[in-house]
Simulated scan of single mutants.
Amino acid sequence: MLALIGMSATSPTRAQSADLVLCDRVAADPGDPDKPADVRGVAEIAPADVATAIKFCRVAAGGSRRALYQLGRAYAANRQGTEAVSAYRKAADKGSTSAMVELGVLLATGAGGTTDEAQARKLFERAAEAGNPRGVTNLAALSKGGVLADPVKARTLLAKTAETNAEAQYQLGIMMADGVGGPKDDVAARGLFEKAAAQGHAGAMERMGAFAQSGRGGPQDTSAAKAFYEKAAALGNEDAKAALKRAECPMAIRDKRGNLVTNLCW
Protein backbone atom coordinates (compact mmCIF):
# COMPACT_ATOMS: atom_id res chain seq x y z
CA MET A 1 0.00 0.00 0.00
CA LEU A 2 2.89 2.36 0.80
CA ALA A 3 4.32 1.74 -2.67
CA LEU A 4 1.01 2.60 -4.29
CA ILE A 5 0.68 5.78 -2.23
CA GLY A 6 4.20 6.71 -3.21
CA MET A 7 3.31 6.39 -6.90
CA SER A 8 0.22 8.50 -6.42
CA ALA A 9 2.32 11.41 -5.25
CA THR A 10 4.22 11.64 -8.52
CA SER A 11 1.66 11.14 -11.25
CA PRO A 12 -2.05 12.15 -11.42
CA THR A 13 -2.78 9.32 -13.87
CA ARG A 14 -1.09 6.70 -11.74
CA ALA A 15 -2.69 8.20 -8.61
CA GLN A 16 -6.12 7.53 -10.06
CA SER A 17 -5.09 3.99 -10.94
CA ALA A 18 -3.75 3.37 -7.43
CA ASP A 19 -6.92 4.71 -5.82
CA LEU A 20 -9.07 2.48 -8.00
CA VAL A 21 -6.93 -0.57 -7.22
CA LEU A 22 -7.33 0.04 -3.50
CA CYS A 23 -11.03 0.79 -3.88
CA ASP A 24 -11.49 -2.48 -5.77
CA ARG A 25 -9.49 -4.42 -3.22
CA VAL A 26 -11.71 -3.57 -0.25
CA ALA A 27 -15.08 -2.66 -1.80
CA ALA A 28 -15.63 -4.41 -5.16
CA ASP A 29 -18.89 -6.34 -5.48
CA PRO A 30 -18.31 -9.94 -6.68
CA GLY A 31 -21.56 -9.81 -8.67
CA ASP A 32 -20.99 -6.44 -10.33
CA PRO A 33 -20.92 -6.81 -14.14
CA ASP A 34 -18.51 -3.85 -14.25
CA LYS A 35 -15.96 -5.69 -12.10
CA PRO A 36 -12.85 -6.86 -14.00
CA ALA A 37 -12.31 -10.61 -14.00
CA ASP A 38 -9.06 -10.32 -12.05
CA VAL A 39 -10.74 -8.48 -9.16
CA ARG A 40 -12.08 -10.91 -6.57
CA GLY A 41 -14.50 -8.64 -4.73
CA VAL A 42 -16.04 -8.99 -1.26
CA ALA A 43 -19.59 -9.96 -0.40
CA GLU A 44 -19.57 -7.43 2.43
CA ILE A 45 -17.07 -4.69 3.18
CA ALA A 46 -15.22 -5.58 6.37
CA PRO A 47 -15.77 -3.07 9.20
CA ALA A 48 -12.02 -2.50 9.42
CA ASP A 49 -11.93 -1.60 5.71
CA VAL A 50 -14.86 0.84 5.59
CA ALA A 51 -12.80 3.99 6.19
CA THR A 52 -10.24 2.87 3.60
CA ALA A 53 -13.00 2.15 1.10
CA ILE A 54 -14.59 5.57 1.54
CA LYS A 55 -11.23 7.31 1.27
CA PHE A 56 -10.00 5.68 -1.92
CA CYS A 57 -13.34 5.08 -3.65
CA ARG A 58 -14.26 8.74 -3.19
CA VAL A 59 -11.16 9.78 -5.13
CA ALA A 60 -11.49 7.04 -7.76
CA ALA A 61 -15.19 7.81 -8.26
CA GLY A 62 -14.32 10.87 -10.32
CA GLY A 63 -13.26 8.70 -13.23
CA SER A 64 -14.97 5.35 -12.65
CA ARG A 65 -18.66 4.49 -12.30
CA ARG A 66 -17.58 1.22 -10.70
CA ALA A 67 -15.75 3.13 -7.98
CA LEU A 68 -18.76 5.41 -7.56
CA TYR A 69 -20.98 2.36 -6.99
CA GLN A 70 -18.41 0.93 -4.59
CA LEU A 71 -18.39 4.23 -2.73
CA GLY A 72 -22.12 3.75 -2.25
CA ARG A 73 -21.44 0.29 -0.83
CA ALA A 74 -18.90 1.77 1.57
CA TYR A 75 -21.31 4.46 2.74
CA ALA A 76 -24.03 1.84 3.22
CA ALA A 77 -21.64 -0.30 5.28
CA ASN A 78 -20.91 2.78 7.38
CA ARG A 79 -24.64 3.41 7.90
CA GLN A 80 -24.49 6.67 5.95
CA GLY A 81 -27.78 6.13 4.16
CA THR A 82 -28.13 9.55 2.55
CA GLU A 83 -24.62 9.44 1.13
CA ALA A 84 -25.13 5.86 -0.09
CA VAL A 85 -28.32 6.82 -1.96
CA SER A 86 -26.58 9.79 -3.54
CA ALA A 87 -23.62 7.69 -4.71
CA TYR A 88 -25.86 4.93 -6.05
CA ARG A 89 -28.01 7.45 -7.91
CA LYS A 90 -24.99 9.09 -9.55
CA ALA A 91 -23.53 5.69 -10.50
CA ALA A 92 -26.90 4.57 -11.90
CA ASP A 93 -27.10 7.74 -13.99
CA LYS A 94 -23.72 6.78 -15.44
CA GLY A 95 -25.01 3.32 -16.36
CA SER A 96 -23.99 1.14 -13.41
CA THR A 97 -26.57 -1.64 -13.34
CA SER A 98 -25.45 -2.76 -9.88
CA ALA A 99 -26.14 0.75 -8.58
CA MET A 100 -29.58 0.58 -10.20
CA VAL A 101 -30.26 -2.63 -8.30
CA GLU A 102 -29.06 -1.32 -4.94
CA LEU A 103 -30.95 1.95 -5.33
CA GLY A 104 -34.02 -0.01 -6.37
CA VAL A 105 -33.78 -2.16 -3.24
CA LEU A 106 -33.57 0.93 -1.03
CA LEU A 107 -36.61 2.47 -2.74
CA ALA A 108 -38.61 -0.76 -2.69
CA THR A 109 -37.99 -1.38 1.00
CA GLY A 110 -37.88 2.20 2.22
CA ALA A 111 -34.46 1.55 3.75
CA GLY A 112 -33.11 4.71 2.13
CA GLY A 113 -35.70 6.89 3.83
CA THR A 114 -38.21 6.96 0.95
CA THR A 115 -40.44 4.23 -0.44
CA ASP A 116 -41.14 4.38 -4.17
CA GLU A 117 -42.05 0.99 -5.62
CA ALA A 118 -42.76 2.40 -9.08
CA GLN A 119 -39.29 3.93 -9.32
CA ALA A 120 -37.74 0.76 -7.91
CA ARG A 121 -39.47 -1.26 -10.62
CA LYS A 122 -38.11 1.06 -13.31
CA LEU A 123 -34.59 0.69 -11.95
CA PHE A 124 -34.86 -3.09 -11.82
CA GLU A 125 -36.22 -3.11 -15.38
CA ARG A 126 -33.29 -1.00 -16.63
CA ALA A 127 -30.81 -3.30 -14.90
CA ALA A 128 -32.58 -6.44 -16.16
CA GLU A 129 -32.72 -5.22 -19.74
CA ALA A 130 -28.99 -4.50 -19.53
CA GLY A 131 -28.39 -8.09 -18.46
CA ASN A 132 -27.84 -7.70 -14.71
CA PRO A 133 -29.02 -10.97 -13.10
CA ARG A 134 -29.93 -9.33 -9.80
CA GLY A 135 -32.01 -6.81 -11.70
CA VAL A 136 -33.91 -9.72 -13.21
CA THR A 137 -34.55 -11.56 -9.94
CA ASN A 138 -35.43 -8.42 -8.02
CA LEU A 139 -37.86 -7.43 -10.73
CA ALA A 140 -39.51 -10.83 -10.39
CA ALA A 141 -39.53 -10.64 -6.60
CA LEU A 142 -41.06 -7.16 -6.45
CA SER A 143 -44.39 -8.38 -5.22
CA LYS A 144 -47.88 -7.37 -4.30
CA GLY A 145 -49.64 -9.53 -1.78
CA GLY A 146 -46.66 -11.87 -1.56
CA VAL A 147 -47.01 -13.15 -5.14
CA LEU A 148 -44.05 -13.05 -7.50
CA ALA A 149 -44.62 -10.43 -10.18
CA ASP A 150 -43.48 -12.39 -13.23
CA PRO A 151 -41.20 -15.40 -12.54
CA VAL A 152 -41.64 -16.70 -16.10
CA LYS A 153 -40.22 -13.48 -17.53
CA ALA A 154 -37.44 -13.52 -14.95
CA ARG A 155 -36.44 -17.04 -15.95
CA THR A 156 -36.44 -16.09 -19.63
CA LEU A 157 -34.28 -13.01 -19.02
CA LEU A 158 -31.84 -15.00 -16.87
CA ALA A 159 -31.50 -17.65 -19.58
CA LYS A 160 -30.34 -14.96 -22.02
CA THR A 161 -27.58 -13.87 -19.64
CA ALA A 162 -26.59 -17.25 -18.26
CA GLU A 163 -24.28 -18.20 -21.13
CA THR A 164 -21.40 -16.20 -19.67
CA ASN A 165 -22.51 -14.68 -16.35
CA ALA A 166 -21.92 -16.67 -13.15
CA GLU A 167 -24.54 -14.78 -11.14
CA ALA A 168 -27.15 -15.43 -13.83
CA GLN A 169 -26.20 -19.12 -13.90
CA TYR A 170 -26.60 -19.31 -10.14
CA GLN A 171 -29.94 -17.48 -10.07
CA LEU A 172 -31.34 -19.50 -12.97
CA GLY A 173 -30.14 -22.67 -11.27
CA ILE A 174 -32.04 -21.72 -8.12
CA MET A 175 -35.23 -21.15 -10.11
CA MET A 176 -34.84 -24.46 -11.94
CA ALA A 177 -34.09 -26.34 -8.73
CA ASP A 178 -37.22 -24.93 -7.11
CA GLY A 179 -39.42 -25.14 -10.22
CA VAL A 180 -40.07 -21.38 -10.21
CA GLY A 181 -41.10 -19.79 -13.49
CA GLY A 182 -41.01 -23.10 -15.34
CA PRO A 183 -40.49 -26.84 -14.91
CA LYS A 184 -38.26 -28.20 -12.15
CA ASP A 185 -35.02 -29.59 -13.57
CA ASP A 186 -32.38 -30.75 -11.09
CA VAL A 187 -29.97 -31.91 -13.80
CA ALA A 188 -29.99 -28.55 -15.56
CA ALA A 189 -29.78 -26.73 -12.23
CA ARG A 190 -26.74 -28.75 -11.20
CA GLY A 191 -25.08 -28.01 -14.54
CA LEU A 192 -25.62 -24.28 -14.03
CA PHE A 193 -24.29 -24.40 -10.47
CA GLU A 194 -21.22 -26.25 -11.72
CA LYS A 195 -20.53 -23.59 -14.36
CA ALA A 196 -20.93 -20.76 -11.86
CA ALA A 197 -18.81 -22.56 -9.25
CA ALA A 198 -16.00 -22.91 -11.79
CA GLN A 199 -16.01 -19.11 -12.04
CA GLY A 200 -15.62 -18.70 -8.29
CA HIS A 201 -19.26 -18.09 -7.32
CA ALA A 202 -19.52 -18.96 -3.61
CA GLY A 203 -23.28 -19.54 -3.62
CA ALA A 204 -22.99 -21.91 -6.55
CA MET A 205 -20.18 -23.78 -4.80
CA GLU A 206 -22.42 -24.25 -1.76
CA ARG A 207 -25.27 -25.52 -3.96
CA MET A 208 -22.90 -27.90 -5.75
CA GLY A 209 -21.86 -29.21 -2.35
CA ALA A 210 -25.47 -29.83 -1.41
CA PHE A 211 -26.33 -31.47 -4.74
CA ALA A 212 -23.22 -33.65 -4.67
CA GLN A 213 -23.85 -34.63 -1.06
CA SER A 214 -27.42 -35.79 -1.74
CA GLY A 215 -26.91 -37.04 -5.30
CA ARG A 216 -29.43 -34.55 -6.57
CA GLY A 217 -29.31 -33.98 -10.33
CA GLY A 218 -26.28 -36.27 -10.72
CA PRO A 219 -23.97 -38.68 -8.91
CA GLN A 220 -23.57 -38.62 -5.15
CA ASP A 221 -20.02 -37.74 -4.13
CA THR A 222 -19.34 -36.85 -0.49
CA SER A 223 -15.69 -36.03 -1.15
CA ALA A 224 -16.61 -33.56 -3.90
CA ALA A 225 -19.34 -32.13 -1.67
CA LYS A 226 -16.85 -31.43 1.10
CA ALA A 227 -14.45 -29.80 -1.35
CA PHE A 228 -17.17 -27.51 -2.67
CA TYR A 229 -18.27 -26.60 0.85
CA GLU A 230 -14.69 -25.80 1.87
CA LYS A 231 -14.16 -23.53 -1.13
CA ALA A 232 -17.45 -21.72 -0.52
CA ALA A 233 -16.72 -21.38 3.21
CA ALA A 234 -13.32 -19.89 2.43
CA LEU A 235 -15.15 -17.21 0.45
CA GLY A 236 -17.37 -16.46 3.44
CA ASN A 237 -20.50 -18.43 2.55
CA GLU A 238 -22.33 -19.07 5.83
CA ASP A 239 -24.46 -21.95 4.52
CA ALA A 240 -21.31 -23.80 3.48
CA LYS A 241 -19.76 -23.20 6.90
CA ALA A 242 -22.87 -24.63 8.53
CA ALA A 243 -22.79 -27.66 6.22
CA LEU A 244 -19.18 -28.38 7.19
CA LYS A 245 -20.08 -28.04 10.85
CA ARG A 246 -22.94 -30.50 10.45
CA ALA A 247 -20.56 -32.96 8.81
CA GLU A 248 -18.19 -32.69 11.78
CA CYS A 249 -21.03 -33.08 14.29
CA PRO A 250 -23.57 -35.38 12.63
CA MET A 251 -25.24 -36.85 15.71
CA ALA A 252 -28.06 -34.61 16.97
CA ILE A 253 -29.29 -34.90 20.57
CA ARG A 254 -32.89 -33.73 20.99
CA ASP A 255 -35.28 -33.33 23.91
CA LYS A 256 -38.72 -34.93 24.25
CA ARG A 257 -40.26 -32.19 22.13
CA GLY A 258 -37.78 -32.75 19.34
CA ASN A 259 -35.83 -29.57 19.98
CA LEU A 260 -32.09 -29.68 19.31
CA VAL A 261 -30.07 -29.79 22.51
CA THR A 262 -26.58 -30.35 21.14
CA ASN A 263 -24.58 -32.17 18.47
CA LEU A 264 -22.00 -34.87 19.05
CA CYS A 265 -18.78 -34.32 17.15
CA TRP A 266 -16.00 -36.67 16.15
Rank of each mutant, 00 (worst) to 15 (best):
A27K: 07
E163V: 13
V21N: 08
E125A: 11
L148P: 04
A212E: 03
A240F: 02
L20G: 02
R58Y: 15
Q119C: 01
R79N: 08
V180I: 14
A77L: 07
P151A: 05
A188V: 03
I253S: 00
L264V: 06
A87L: 04
A252P: 00
D93R: 14
P133G: 14
P183S: 04
L157G: 14
Q70L: 03
N259S: 10
R66G: 06
A227V: 08
V85I: 14
G6T: 14
S8K: 08
F211P: 03
Y170Q: 05
S223H: 05
A15N: 12
Q119F: 02
A210N: 08
D49L: 15
L235R: 15
G6D: 09
P36E: 07
M205F: 00
D32C: 06
V50P: 02
Q213F: 03
E194C: 01
K144L: 12
G81C: 05
Q16T: 15
H201C: 07
G209H: 02
V105N: 09
L103Q: 11
K241M: 08
A210H: 01
R207D: 00
D178Y: 05
L244K: 01
L71D: 09
S214G: 00
N263M: 13
L68V: 13
N138Y: 12
K160I: 02
M208E: 04
M1F: 11
R65F: 13
R207I: 00
A3Y: 05
M7Y: 14
R65A: 06
A27S: 12
A141M: 10
Q16M: 15
D93G: 07
L158T: 06
A198V: 13
V39G: 11
G131T: 02
A91D: 01
A247V: 02
G104P: 01
Y170A: 13
G95L: 13
A87I: 14
A204K: 05
S17Q: 15
A127F: 04
A242F: 03
A141L: 09
P47V: 10
A48P: 12
R155W: 01
E163C: 08
L68W: 10
V187T: 00
A210T: 00
K256G: 13
G217S: 08
P12G: 10
G113D: 01
E163D: 11
R155Y: 06
A118V: 09
L235Y: 12
M251F: 10
A196M: 04
D185Q: 07
Q70M: 13
N165F: 01
D185E: 01
L106E: 08
I253A: 01
G62D: 15
G145M: 10
D185F: 04
K153L: 14
T114I: 12
R126S: 04
K94L: 12
R254H: 06
G191Y: 03
Y229P: 03
A204P: 06
M100L: 13
D34A: 13
K55S: 15
V21A: 07
I45F: 14
P250C: 09
R40T: 07
E44P: 14
K90E: 11
C265K: 05
R66K: 11
W266L: 12
V39D: 08
S143W: 01
Y170W: 07
G173M: 02
G104M: 08
Q80K: 09
S8H: 09
